[in-house]
Structure formats: structure tokens, C-alpha cells
């Protein structure tokens, strides 16, 4: 595995495309952020898997509603014990795809945008594990964590932790639809817009 970059020729096309996006230094136009959230089978990134992943784009200072993706992942062992953990039902009616296809769709959507999520480290690690299972490298995108942004705005140290609900209270974001992937993504996107403005990012 360690030498896979030497045999780069054998990597799948989508991955090559994804990597090539980071070769270009000059970026023009509005910066794109992708806010994402996922439902997983648990909190252990070694054993648990992604069940569903949703993401939406933010261009400059606006959420682009059309710039949206949601992928539900077909599970090989259907005895997924996840639901109770995050209290999120996985019953959105989207067609389910296998994990590999989901990663292709996700990375094609994300491109070279800055990834944003609440407690992003776990989420990104879940993605990295999925990519590892495909024999590919790690996510290359710049990352931003809404929790960290919030703590910075509040002037607390980075390791303080606040939940998404606490952020909603503090930043006055309505919590409708809180417990679906798309709902969480949208709420996180609004939180991000507000924090972005307050921190003048």
C-alpha cells in the first residue's frame, strides 16, 4: 500500500481527477465550501461504516440550494445497529448505492472545496477509512470545523466542545428538520454562514 503512488497509473479515473484538482494553485472566483454531515453505524472509525452522507455548497456568502448531494449507502450486513446511536432513522427514500459508488459521487461533488462539518475529524476519518477500503489515499481538502469556529468566536480554547444544538441556540438557527441528514447539513450550513460573517473569514 505504501508504494501505491508509484503505480499511480492503476488508480481509478475519478481519484486521479480528484487529485489533479489540487495541482492548480490559482483559484479565481468565489471560494466554495462544502458543508457535509453523515449518519454512521457508530462512533468507532475503525469498525463502523457510513450509512448516509449529505452535502451542500456555500459560494462566497450564500448557500447554493442546487449545489446539493445526498447519498445513502447500501449495507452488506443489514444488521446495522446504528439507529439508536445518533437517533437518526435512515429512511430517506433515495436509492442506495454501494460504498465505492458513494465515495465516487461524494468526491466528484466535493471537488477541491473546503470541507466544513461539525466535529469534522470523525466525519473525515470515516471517509478516509472508506477510501482506504478502496485502496486509495486520504482526503486532501482543507477542513474547517464549526465547533472550532464557534469556540474561536466565543474566545474559548479549541478543545471545548459544544453540540450542534448548543450552536443553534447561541446563533439563533431554527432547528426544524434537525434529525435528518439533509436537515443537519442545512442547519450546519446556516451556522457556518453566521460564523463566517462573525469571524470575517
Amino acid at each position: 500500500m505504501a508504494f501505491e503512488w508509484l503505480t499511480g497509473g492503476s488508480m481509478p479515473q475519478f481519484w486521479k481527477n480528484y487529485l489533479s484538482l489540487f495541482d492548480i494553485d490559482e483559484k479565481n472566483g468565489l471560494k466554495r465550501y462544502v458543508i457535509f454531515d453523515m449518519v454512521t453505524s457508530g462512533l468507532d472509525w475503525k469498525d463502523d461504516v457510513i450509512l448516509s452522507i449529505g452535502a451542500i455548497g456555500v459560494h462566497g456568502d450564500a448557500v447554493e440550494v442546487g449545489d446539493f448531494i445526498q447519498v445513502d449507502i447500501l449495507q452488506e450486513n443489514s444488521t446495522v445497529q446504528s439507529v439508536a446511536l445518533r437517533g437518526v432513522p435512515v429512511n430517506e427514500q433515495n436509492e442506495k448505492v454501494v460504498e465505492a459508488e458513494a465515495m465516487i459521487q461524494f468526491l466528484n461533488f466535493v471537488k477541491d472545496a473546503t470541507l466544513v462539518s461539525h466535529n469534522i475529524n470523525l466525519d473525515v476519518e470515516m471517509v478516509n477509512q472508506a477510501l482506504k477500503r478502496l485502496g486509495l489515499g486520504r482526503i486532501k481538502n482543507p477542513l474547517m470545523d464549526t465547533n472550532a469556529l464557534y469556540q474561536r468566536w466565543k474566545g474559548f480554547s479549541d478543545d471545548t466542545h459544544a453540540t450542534l444544538d448548543e450552536l443553534c441556540e447561541a446563533l439563533k438557527v431554527r432547528k426544524n428538520d434537525r434529525h435528518t441528514v439533509s436537515g443537519n447539513v442545512y442547519i450546519t450550513a446556516l451556522l457556518f454562514l453566521k460564523l463566517k460573517r462573525k469571524l470575517e473569514i
Partner: peptide, 10 residues
């Protein structure tokens, strides 16, 4: 693809 965010706005 279904877009729940768009539905919410609609």
C-alpha cells in the same frame, strides 16, 4: 435526485 433543502424552501 431529491433535494430536501429545496423542498423546505418551496
Amino acid at each position: 435526485m431529491k433535494n430536501p433543502v429545496a423542498e423546505r424552501i418551496a
